[in-house]
Simulated assay, not measured.
Amino acid sequence: MAEIQLKSISKRWGSFVGVQSFDLTIPDREFLVLLGPSGCGKTTTMRMIAGLEGITEGEILVDGKRVNDLDPKDRDVAMVFQSYALYPNMSVYENIRFPLKVRGIDPSTHNEKVMRASAMVELDDFLHRKPAELSGGQRQRVALARAIVREPNVFLMDEPLSNLDAKLRVSTRAQIKNLSHELAVTTIYVTHDQIEAMTLADRVVVMNKGVVQQVGTPTDIYDNPANTFVASFIGSPAMNLIDGTVSGGTFTAPKTSVAGTGLPDGDVTLGFRAEDASLATAGEGQITANIYSLELLGDATMITVRIGPSLVSVKADKSFRAEIGDPVSIAIPHDQCHFFDAGSGQRLQN
Rank of each mutant, 00 (worst) to 15 (best):
Q138W: 11
G235H: 00
N224V: 08
L156S: 01
M120Y: 10
M1N: 12
G298A: 06
L297G: 01
R12F: 15
N290Y: 12
A231F: 04
Q20C: 15
G58Q: 04
A132E: 15
L24I: 15
S38G: 07
T217C: 08
Q194C: 02
G104K: 01
D220R: 04
M120H: 11
R29G: 01
F233T: 09
F98C: 04
E3K: 15
S171L: 09
H334E: 15
T43S: 09
S319V: 09
E151C: 06
Q346I: 12
R47M: 14
R169A: 00
V230D: 07
I55D: 04
G41P: 01
I96T: 04
K177Q: 13
E3Q: 15
G249K: 04
E30M: 15
K318W: 07
R306C: 07
I26C: 02
A316M: 05
Y222S: 02
S38H: 03
L52I: 10
R347W: 04
L164C: 02
E284P: 10
N227Q: 05
G248Q: 05
S319W: 06
K11E: 06
D341I: 03
G136C: 03
I4N: 01
H334V: 14
P218T: 01
P27S: 13
N89F: 13
V62Q: 01
L241M: 09
A289N: 06
K65T: 14
M46S: 04
L32N: 10
L134V: 09
V206L: 03
E323G: 05
G260C: 08
D124N: 15
G248V: 02
L24S: 12
D317S: 09
D223G: 07
G266E: 01
V205T: 10
L161Q: 04
S257P: 09
A259S: 15
T44E: 06
F31D: 01
F16N: 14
R29M: 11
D265G: 07
V212S: 10
T217V: 05
A331K: 12
V154Y: 04
A2C: 08
T217F: 07
I195F: 01
V215P: 15
Q194L: 00
I55R: 03
F251N: 09
D265M: 11
A274I: 05
L164W: 09
G248H: 11
R75E: 00
A282G: 06
R116N: 11
I4P: 00
F272N: 08
P152T: 12
E159K: 04
M48Q: 03
G308V: 14
L24N: 08
V268L: 08
D223L: 10
K73E: 10
S8M: 11
N240C: 08
M1G: 15
T256F: 02
N290P: 01
I195Q: 01
L6Q: 03
D106W: 13
Q346V: 14
Y93A: 13
S118V: 14
R173A: 00
F22C: 11
L35S: 07
L161F: 08
M1R: 11
D223W: 09
G54I: 12
